[in-house]
Computed example of a mutant assay.
Amino acid sequence: MTNKELLKKAFVEALNLSPETDVEALQYNSIPEWDSLAHMALISQLDEAFDIMLDTEDVIDLSSYQKAEEILVKYGVTFQ
């Protein structure tokens, strides 16, 4: 599984979305499913999927799928 697929899977599972959802268009609070509790579930999914521990600042900054990619790159995750 590619890192892009892992990231999508993390969003789908944490936010309890359909696999067909266009997660790349998602932004925090843009859908009812992405509330504060789901946000913490997403952080947990990302930590586990990529074997990292996000800093508090990054947890707060994670406001979209695109931002998640940017943040993960800081932790050495590559996307192709």
Results as ranks from 00 to 15, higher is better:
Met1Ser: 14
Asn3Ile: 02
Glu5Gly: 00
Glu5His: 10
Leu7Ile: 05
Leu7Ala: 01
Lys8Gly: 03
Lys9Gly: 06
Lys9Val: 01
Lys9Met: 05
Lys9Ala: 12
Ala10Ile: 00
Ala10Asn: 03
Ala10Ser: 09
Phe11Thr: 02
Val12Leu: 11
Glu13Asp: 04
Leu15Lys: 07
Leu15Asn: 01
Asn16His: 10
Asn16Phe: 00
Asn16Arg: 14
Leu17Phe: 14
Leu17Ile: 09
Leu17Val: 02
Leu17Asp: 13
Ser18Glu: 15
Pro19Ala: 12
Pro19Asp: 10
Pro19Lys: 13
Glu20Asp: 15
Glu20His: 09
Thr21Lys: 15
Thr21Ser: 12
Thr21Glu: 13
Asp22Lys: 15
Asp22Ile: 11
Val23Gly: 09
Glu24Val: 01
Ala25His: 05
Tyr28Leu: 15
Asn29Met: 11
Asn29Lys: 12
Ser30Cys: 08
Ser30Ile: 01
Ile31Ser: 10
Asp35Trp: 04
Leu37Thr: 05
Ala38Gln: 04
His39Lys: 14
Met40Glu: 03
Ala41Trp: 02
Leu42Ser: 01
Ser44Phe: 05
Ser44Leu: 11
Gln45Asn: 06
Gln45Thr: 00
Glu48Gly: 05
Ala49Tyr: 10
Ala49Asp: 12
Phe50Glu: 13
Phe50Met: 12
Asp51Val: 07
Asp51Gln: 11
Ile52His: 10
Ile52Gln: 14
Leu54Asn: 11
Asp55Met: 12
Asp55Leu: 13
Asp55Glu: 14
Asp55Asn: 13
Asp55Ala: 14
Glu57Gln: 08
Asp58Ser: 13
Val59Trp: 04
Val59His: 06
Ile60Trp: 02
Ser63His: 03
Ser64His: 07
Tyr65Val: 03
Tyr65Gln: 10
Gln66Pro: 00
Gln66Leu: 14
Lys67Ser: 00
Ala68Met: 07
Glu69Asp: 09
Glu70Ile: 03
Glu70Thr: 03
Glu70Gln: 14
Ile71Asn: 08
Leu72Ala: 04
Leu72Asn: 04
Val73Ala: 12
Lys74Asn: 09
Val77Tyr: 03
Thr78Ser: 15
Thr78Asn: 14
Gln80Thr: 04
